[in-house]
Amino acid sequence: MPSTTSDQPAAGVRAPLRETAVDALKIVIVGGFGVGKTTMVGSVSEIQPLSTEEVMTQASVGIDDASRVRTKATTTVAFDFGRITLNSSMVLYLFGAPGQQRFWFVWDQLFAGSLGAVVMVDTRRLEESFYSIDRLEHHRMPFVVAVNRFADGPALSSVRDALALSPEVPIVDCDARERSSCKTVLITLVEHLARMHDLSPVRESTP
């Protein structure tokens, strides 16, 4: 047999889930300004998270609308980084994106090599998550939607409709301040990824 296997692209690239003993998965956490991305990385990480929080200055009044999260004094200016070991064979590397438009240029770097994403939404400002969902769909990156409940809000099914999510996209409730809640979101994502990777060979074999 000719040794073409080593330089065969694509096939193995999107399905590394079962090929290594310890799977290190890069996951990005995206969403609008102040929805709780940094909070989530902080609550769930088992290492001291890298944070690039900077105090919001007076120059940001009128640019960054913090009226919905009044306790918020800082904002992410590069990215958050944390790590969580889900079980003996799976480690997630979490990259929290910056939410403000002026830092969106960082997103492409964060997306490189990522296998999946969490989109955090605040139901009081659903429209702020449209950009995240568009970007993920554009990159064809699988994602789950985590509804960070700041207050009572619409049921998950109406959030799903409002975001026009396709039926296979999981949507779950979440409290970004609770470790167990964040972990549930991540497990939902990993299961979603596994499902997608299991399905794809079936689809490919029936042209």
Binding site: M56, A59, R102
Partner: peptide, 8 residues
């Protein structure tokens, strides 16, 4: 610039 990324 400000530390939160705005031009002065």
């Amino acid at each position: 610039l400000t530390r939160d990324g705005l031009k002065m």
